[in-house]
Computed example of a mutant assay.
Amino acid sequence: MITMKDIIKEGHPTLKQPAAEVPLPASETDKATLQSLIDYVINSQNPDIASQYGLRPGIGLAAPQINVSKRMMAVHVTDEKGTLHSYALFNPKIVSHSVEKTYLSSGEGCLSVDREVPGYVPRYARITVKAFTIDGEEIKIRLKGLPAIVFQHEIDHLDGIMFYDHINQQDPFKQPEDATPIDR
């Protein structure tokens, strides 16, 4: 089981390097790693389990955050309509995106960053992702709103990009062009 001590923090070199594709079909080791990512995210949202194991609540986690430089990620998040988006994926790739942008009005956070980083993080409002499930099935997912933001945040981890790399350094709260805020 992944705990907070397994999550590496900003400044660690693994967080700044692009992760390797996972050879498919996935090995049992890679499947176990991916399962542990989704287990962490789900368990971290359960107040009893989170408190018992000292888990910081999260809605997404990428393998580089546990110092495994492979293209794996897990997301467990509910959209504005109450629909649960729960995925554990190998080799996710954004295959198309909207021109329109969005951002979280409250800013983004990260399990690998133990400080508040103020500012808006521009993201695509809608994305289409292709990936492989833990069972090796290829899937195509269309996302918008918060789930789209979470996917982009986690895929950035796979590319060695931190969320604050997108924040306008001169004016962190400058509204991104053609962007609609999401309140969370």
Results as ranks from 00 to 15, higher is better:
residue 142 R to P: 04
residue 88 A to T: 05
residue 59 I to S: 03
residue 147 P to G: 06
residue 148 A to F: 13
residue 174 K to W: 02
residue 28 E to A: 14
residue 111 L to Q: 03
residue 179 A to L: 08
residue 26 A to V: 08
residue 180 T to D: 07
residue 62 A to M: 06
residue 98 S to R: 07
residue 33 T to K: 04
residue 75 V to C: 07
residue 29 T to L: 13
residue 59 I to M: 13
residue 171 D to V: 08
residue 15 L to K: 08
residue 64 P to F: 03
residue 54 G to H: 09
residue 38 I to F: 03
residue 117 V to R: 11
residue 41 V to I: 05
residue 166 H to A: 09
residue 40 Y to I: 03
residue 26 A to C: 09
residue 9 K to V: 02
residue 95 V to N: 06
residue 30 D to L: 08
residue 101 K to G: 12
residue 105 S to I: 13
residue 174 K to E: 11
residue 56 R to F: 00
residue 77 V to G: 06
residue 84 L to F: 04
residue 42 I to F: 03
residue 17 Q to W: 00
residue 33 T to L: 11
residue 160 G to F: 01
residue 89 L to P: 06
residue 93 K to P: 01
residue 111 L to D: 00
residue 125 A to W: 04
residue 149 I to W: 07
residue 87 Y to W: 12
residue 149 I to D: 03
residue 91 N to D: 12
residue 45 Q to V: 00
residue 99 V to Q: 12
residue 123 R to L: 04
residue 34 L to H: 09
residue 85 H to S: 10
residue 60 G to L: 05
residue 109 G to Y: 02
residue 158 L to R: 03
residue 53 Y to F: 13
residue 32 A to R: 15
residue 40 Y to F: 14
residue 79 D to S: 10
residue 99 V to D: 13
residue 81 K to T: 14
residue 107 G to Y: 08
residue 81 K to E: 14
residue 139 I to C: 09
residue 172 P to I: 09
residue 79 D to Q: 07
residue 65 Q to M: 06
residue 113 V to C: 13
residue 17 Q to V: 05
residue 3 T to E: 12
residue 171 D to P: 01
residue 69 S to L: 10
residue 65 Q to C: 05
residue 96 S to T: 12
residue 51 S to Y: 01
residue 47 P to T: 01
residue 37 L to N: 11
residue 42 I to K: 15
residue 96 S to W: 09
residue 21 E to C: 02
residue 107 G to C: 10
residue 45 Q to F: 00
residue 157 H to K: 05
residue 142 R to T: 12
residue 134 I to W: 09
residue 144 K to R: 11
residue 142 R to K: 13
residue 177 E to V: 08
residue 143 L to T: 02
residue 93 K to H: 10
residue 114 D to C: 10
residue 30 D to R: 10
residue 61 L to F: 05
residue 84 L to M: 14
residue 49 I to D: 01
residue 145 G to Y: 10
residue 99 V to A: 14
residue 71 R to D: 02
residue 149 I to G: 04
residue 91 N to I: 12
residue 40 Y to W: 10
residue 51 S to P: 00
residue 32 A to I: 03
residue 92 P to R: 08
residue 152 Q to D: 14
residue 171 D to I: 07
residue 153 H to S: 07
residue 14 T to I: 14
residue 181 P to M: 04
residue 132 F to Q: 14
residue 46 N to A: 01
residue 136 G to S: 12
residue 167 I to F: 11
residue 142 R to Y: 06
residue 19 A to C: 06
residue 124 Y to D: 14
residue 61 L to K: 03
residue 39 D to I: 00
residue 64 P to L: 02
residue 30 D to Q: 13
residue 50 A to G: 06
residue 132 F to V: 08
residue 28 E to M: 04
residue 48 D to M: 00
residue 146 L to A: 04
residue 37 L to S: 11
residue 18 P to L: 06
residue 42 I to Q: 15
residue 25 P to Y: 11
residue 166 H to E: 04
residue 93 K to G: 00
residue 20 A to G: 00
residue 177 E to S: 10
residue 70 K to A: 07
residue 183 D to E: 12
